[in-house]
Write a protein that binds this DNA or RNA. Sequence first.
DNA 1: TCCCTCCTTGTTTTT
DNA 2: CAAGGAGGGA
Length: 760
Amino acid sequence: MPELPAVPEPVTACAASYLQGLNETQAEAVRATEGPVLVLAGAGTGKTRVLTTRLAHILETGRARPWQVLCVTFTNKAAREMRERVGTLLGTSVEGWWVGTFHAAGARVLRAHAELVGLQPNFTILDADDQTRLVKQLAEARNIDTKRTPPRLIGSIIQRWKDRGLTPDRVTPAEGADALDGLALPLYAEYQARLQALNATDFGDLLLHGLTLFREHAEVAAKYQRQFRYVLVDEYQDTNVAQYLWLRALAQGHNNLCCVGDDDQSIYSWRGAEVGNILRFERDFPGAKVIRLECNYRSTPHILAAASGLIAHNQGRLGKTLWTTQGEGEKVGVRAVWDGEDEARVVCSEIEALRGRGSALRDIAVLVRAGFQTREFEERLITVGIPYRIIGGARFYERQEIRDAIAYFRIVVQPDDDLAFERIVNTPKRGLGPASLRSVHLLARARGVSLTRAAALLIESDELKPQARATFGRLLGDIARWREMMARTPHTDAARIILEESGYTAMWQADRSAEAAGRLENLKELVAALADFENIAGFLEHVSLVMDNDEALGDDKVSLMTLHAAKGLEFDTVFLPGWEEGIFPNQRSLDEGGAASLEEERRLAYVGLTRARRRAIVLYAANRMVYGRWQNSLPSRFVAELPEETVTHSAPTGLFAAERRRGFESSDWAPGPAAASAPSLMPGFAEPRWAARNRAPMLDGEAVRIAARPAPAHPFSEGQRVFHQKFGYGNIRTVDGDRLEIDFEKSGSKTVIHSFVQAA
DNA sequence: TCCCTCCTTGTTTTT
DNA sequence: CAAGGAGGGA
């Protein structure tokens, strides 16, 4: 560890109470209210604290009233935290304040002036799924081969333009001609026209329309510029061009813009974030004050030095020197393993060891580069019976059943919602196939009316086959009836009745697949969630903007997630598996973005390391199954970039012979002699048949722990039928203590711990 | 309309 | 290898 600067003096005398406990730099960032300020906040330096205190300070000192401060973050989670902390700090409710996500603030501005950009104030906000379906329709109408040019790709190109603040008319002809051979730009224009016709926006529009609004209606821009005396921004390194322009437009009046961020944690360039925004801040806002928060309150010196040494390999950065007052702690473990299975085994036995020493599982995380890597860990965790949760993945409202249910609510509240209509018209199956729908579409297009309207017209005619006609009639009748019911029935009841009468619930009840039970659970949860809202319309209003799936971190479980999902979180112990060339840094990323992408991958590694409070363990495997093929892998270049004095290497004998010259064996991770000679100590686990000879020896006495595990009482017995979240239904073949061998109907025979199954 | 088979394609993802 | 989509056949 390099020499440490002096411990910052805590702010005490004469300071307002909310400044208590801040260090001098943090307090400076709070007090520097006037003019543009960039707070470069390294990982774990208390940036949220600074931001919330700053807001409190502005209000407490009477510099502004609550509605005169705009405070934006990226995620609902961050926004929620901000609101809670400010509320606590000031002892007031923050209801109605401008504290929220970019998109929520954007929507709020837009709702107030929707007509000025050709929308009605009650416009709907579409999500990614709706967008893609819309793009697909438009592409098909143009006879574009959607197999060769996937709608998703077109959608993402449109999204990137929006990220850059470009409406179709502002995309340069050259660029337009370039994108998908000139296909994308006209589709973008059509897409925007279609959204307008649907009275809908996508997420990008919430800001993009705002830009148009400010540009074309100076009086509106001026109103907000006057109103927002202070503008505060979190995670500034993640802003895209549109957000930058939007902020700049709003902050222009008083020029009191405070952006907090860390260029070293910029990991979202691939979705439009511009590191340039933060790097350029001083040029964009002349006279800007830059304050660096460099005192880290989270990690041990070794972890910090490892992360700092690694990130120092990046060129384009503003540079910070993080330091801490904490005592030494453990070095970062760097551990070589044989293959992915071995990796999962090693991590899990370490977790068991930590648990044995009194660590809570909630303080442990496994952070991977890509989602698929969690699978091996899941399997192993299930096998040894360690509870875990996966953070990220499919969000609650993105699940099929939730989206279907919401589409039902949407069509009832707003019968002209074509996207909702299409979604539910034949779900559950009613026999309304593409053939009958085609006539509805044709009529809708010809008359310029919504699909619901068109269907209503059609059933008055003999256009349709009698059966389709009757079915449409029934559906439209149902929708009208539900609509009426909503007016006089408590909305949670109404929701449940809609899902039942539509046959949607029954559809899943009849489904024998493994997920059906879970989906019904989710539907129940959805109905329960409705209780938090005044009515269904209010719920729909919020659902697209503020429904996330943050599983409470409260339960005592190990967390599994991607490095991206880990940003902003911290854990005592962090496992960082898969540090191999090709996986991390990710090959695809490198191929696409070259040197810039390598730097972003490195920042990702930096984010990963700095999540750890006390322990970080990096792992890499000698062999990895990639797309069903075994291949040898090389340790990630990032491994070599960790300063030697901050890490402890270890590898089982025989692995990575070349690296051993760098002193791999002299390590406290190395297996003891007993383990080294006991490859057969692996009850129940198949040797990789292709390499049994070289198998890495058993480590950490894991076999002993498995054998010695006591068998707690549980209610399961042989032959019993059970249900498992992941594997579905099955019958218990044998019971071995707390381990059950189960023949699953869908997934074959698996050994699982009893706590993961329930009686079926 | 449904089911089966073949083929393609495999990062990260908020709002 | 595994999953999801598309297309063909019954």
